[in-house]
Amino acid sequence: MVAVQLRNVSLDYPIYVLEAARLRGNLLHRLTFGKLGERRPERRVVRALLDISLTLEAGDRLGIIGLNGAGKTTLLQMIAGVLEPTLGMRRVEGRISTLYNIGLGFDPEVSGYDNIRLRGLFMGLTPREIDAIVPAIEDFTELGEFLTLPIRTYSAGMQVRLAFAIATSVMPEILIMDEWLGAGDALFMAKSKERMDEIVAASSMLLLASHSESLIKDNCDKAILLDRGRILEHGDVESVYRAYGRVMARAG
C-alpha cells in the first residue's frame, strides 16, 4: 500500500557554519578572560519545517510550491528519509525514487553507463536488474554513444534526460522530483510527461516541487503552498496558485 503520512512534523536545520564562529568566539572570550571575543550561548537553527501535517494516497500527484527557502527541498528530503523530523511522526510506505536538482547522487567523472549502474545499486537493484533497465534507458534518453562518456561532458539537458530516465526506470511507487525542469527540450518534456502519466496511472504517487507553473499544472492534481516551513494553503492547484500570488505580492 503506497502512502505518505506526516503528522505535526517540524524540522530544525542547524547552521553549523555559524556554529564554528560561535565556538571560536566563546573560546577566545574564555581564554582572554572576557576581554576579547563574544559569548553567544545560543545555537542557531533554521526552522525549516513547522507543524506539517499531510496525508497522501496512491494516485495523488502533489505539487509543492513556494518562494526560495520556503522548505520545499527539506520537505522532500524528509519524506524520502534523508532527513529525520525533529518532532512529529512520519510514515512512508512504498518504493521511493528521487530526482533532485541535477548532480546529487551522480559521479561526473564516470560514464553514463557507470552512473546507471551506481545509481541502480543505490536504489537497491541487483546487477541483473540493472542490466535489464539499461536498454530502456538507452532508448528513452536517446544519448547513444554519449552514454560511454563521463557525464561531466554532458549538457544540462542531457544530464536531465539521464537522471529522469534512471529515476523512472523501475516504476517507483513514490516519485519525488525537486526543481526538476527546464533544461530538457520540448520533445523530451512531452516524452517525460507521458512517462510520469504512466507512473501515476500505475497507482503510484508523484511529489513535484517546482517554480514552473506550467510543469505543476501539467503534472499535478493538487498542491501545497509552503511559506517559511508552514503549509499555508492546501488544495487544488488553481486555488493554491492564487494564494501563492498573494504571498508573492506581500514579499515583493
Partner: peptide
C-alpha cells in the same frame, strides 16, 4: 535575508 532567531526544538525521542 536575515536568519530569524528561533529556539531549538527539544530533541527527538
Amino acid at each position: 535575508m536575515t536568519i530569524p532567531k528561533v529556539e531549538a526544538l527539544p530533541s527527538v525521542e
